[in-house]
């Protein structure tokens, strides 16, 4: 996988924000049905994802790298998948598991470790 440009990192941050919003919206919409522990766990995951996203916007401002359209397209696919998933999700544990997997991918993006980004994307696509 090639390196990322600042524009691409910004695009990744936008996509990550959309995924993060889906996690937040799920919590808000299902608040009355969540146990206290489930709510806290989702809230914390949401907070961590927001932290990763804002960090990524800063990284974009600092970086100029080479093109990597393939991973951008994959991220877009994951974004759509996430938004659809949270619209139709019935089981809370699945919501928590998926948020945790996104968090793993976000960490890989933050580190700009392109190998880890690739494997975490693969993990989300399978």
């Amino acid at each position: 996988m090639a390196n990322l440009t600042s524009e691409q990192v910004k695009q990744l941050a936008d996509d990550l924000l959309h995924m993060t919003n889906a996690v937040g919206d799920y919590r808000y919409e299902n608040f009355d049905n969540l146990t206290e522990d489930e709510n806290s766990e989702l809230k914390e995951l949401h907070n961590q994802l927001l932290g990763q996203t804002t960090e990524l916007y800063t990284k974009s401002a600092l970086l100029v790298m080479n093109d990597v359209d393939e991973s951008l397209n994959a991220i877009r696919t994951i974004t759509e998948k996430t938004q659809n998933l949270y619209k139709n999700l019935g089981v809370v544990q699945k919501a928590i598991d998926w948020a945790a997997r996104i968090l793993g991918m976000a960490s890989a993006i933050i580190s700009l470790d392109t190998d880890n980004i690739a494997s975490s994307i693969k993990n989300l696509l399978t």
Partner: peptide
């Protein structure tokens, strides 16, 4: 283009995140 990216892309994006963080905080 870079100025636009940093100001309207990245600072704006960080404010979008901030809006969500505030909602996350106040919601409960």
């Amino acid at each position: 283009t870079f100025l636009e990216l940093n100001v309207h892309g990245n600072i704006y994006g960080k404010l979008e995140v901030q809006k969500q963080s505030i909602k996350n905080f106040y919601f409960d």
